[in-house]
């Protein structure tokens, strides 16, 4: 579903996710330590890694719940159609 960069950037924001544990598309990320501060850091890191701007209206806790929702926001910011769930 997502690329290597995404996995790397996201994992760096998840203090509570051990390296050997897989990142599941629908895992609730608050469980792995993604609080509001970490989310803000993640947004900045994604914007830098992909050289995109995530619009302010997309910066909303609901959009940063799971890897899937974040990937959807990022894909939209990159002007790509959202990939089907899978």
């Amino acid at each position: 579903m997502w690329d290597v960069t995404f996995e790397k950037v996201l994992r760096a924001s998840l203090r509570g996710l051990p390296d050997q544990v897989d990142l599941e598309a629908d895992a609730l990320l608050t469980r792995f330590g993604l609080d509001s501060l970490a989310t803000v850091g993640l947004i900045a890191a994604l914007e830098e890694a992909y050289a995109v701007v995530i619009p302010d209206e997309a910066v909303n806790p609901m959009n940063f719940r799971t890897p899937r929702t974040i990937w959807t926001v990022l894909s939209a910011a990159r002007g790509e159609p959202t990939e089907a769930a899978g």
Partner: peptide, 13 residues
Amino acid sequence: SMTRLHALDPVRA
């Protein structure tokens, strides 16, 4: 109007 998430990055906001 901004949410807490916006406010936590004042430079960007």
